[in-house]
Computed example of a mutant assay.
Amino acid sequence: MSMPQLTVWYNTRCPVCDAGIDWQRNKLLALVRSGRVAFKDINEEPEALSAFGADVDAVRRRLHATDEEGQLITGADVALLLWALTPGEGWLATLFGNRLVRPLTRFGYDRFADVLFAWNKRKGHW
């Protein structure tokens, strides 16, 4: 099997994150089965992104991914890539990823991620 086109790292202990990724994985089942997209739990490989300076809490705070060139992608940009790859959701990537809206998309994603991270800490989802 060749290297995945996109490897998405997320926190399975967060019920919201886990459900969202499970839903997205099911929509991308053909790409997952072909090995072009992979979803990995950062809790199983906590040092996986340390070469990028990303620790477990960074991934628990927001999505991280690596592309086929080994580049790190974070936050809203991961969501935009997933939408672009997902049949029927390319319009979301176009709408929220255009150069005028993308800064707002990133800002909104980051604020939501901060709230979700704090909630997970309070609930003990580690």
Rank of each mutant, 00 (worst) to 15 (best):
M1L: 13
M1F: 13
S2H: 11
S2G: 07
M3W: 10
P4V: 04
P4W: 00
P4Y: 03
V8K: 01
W9P: 00
W9D: 00
W9N: 00
Y10L: 04
N11G: 09
N11C: 12
T12G: 04
R13F: 07
R13S: 10
C17Q: 01
D18E: 14
G20M: 05
I21N: 00
W23Q: 14
K27Q: 15
K27P: 04
K27R: 12
L28F: 04
L28S: 04
L28D: 03
L28I: 05
L29I: 10
L29W: 12
L29C: 11
A30H: 12
V32F: 05
R33N: 15
R33P: 08
G35E: 02
G35F: 00
R36M: 07
V37Q: 02
A38K: 07
F39H: 05
F39I: 04
F39N: 04
K40W: 13
D41T: 03
D41V: 01
I42Q: 00
I42K: 01
N43L: 13
N43D: 15
E44V: 09
E45Y: 12
P46T: 08
E47N: 08
L49A: 00
S50P: 09
S50A: 15
A51F: 09
G53S: 03
A54G: 08
A54L: 13
D55Q: 02
D57R: 08
A58N: 12
V59T: 05
V59N: 01
R60E: 10
R61W: 04
H64A: 07
A65L: 01
A65Q: 00
D67W: 03
E68H: 11
E69A: 13
G70Y: 02
L72N: 01
L72S: 01
L72T: 00
T74W: 03
G75N: 06
A76W: 01
D77N: 05
V78M: 02
V78A: 01
A79S: 14
L81I: 09
L82A: 12
W83H: 11
A84Y: 10
L85C: 10
T86M: 06
T86W: 05
P87L: 02
G88Q: 08
E89C: 15
G90W: 06
W91I: 08
A93T: 06
T94L: 15
T94Y: 13
L95W: 12
F96R: 05
F96V: 06
F96L: 13
F96C: 10
F96M: 11
R99E: 15
L100M: 12
L100P: 06
V101P: 06
P103Q: 03
P103I: 00
L104I: 08
T105V: 04
T105N: 02
F107E: 08
G108P: 03
G108K: 06
Y109V: 03
R111L: 10
F112R: 14
L116G: 02
L116R: 06
F117T: 03
A118L: 11
K121G: 10
K121Q: 14
K121M: 10
K123T: 09
K123E: 13
G124S: 06
W126N: 09
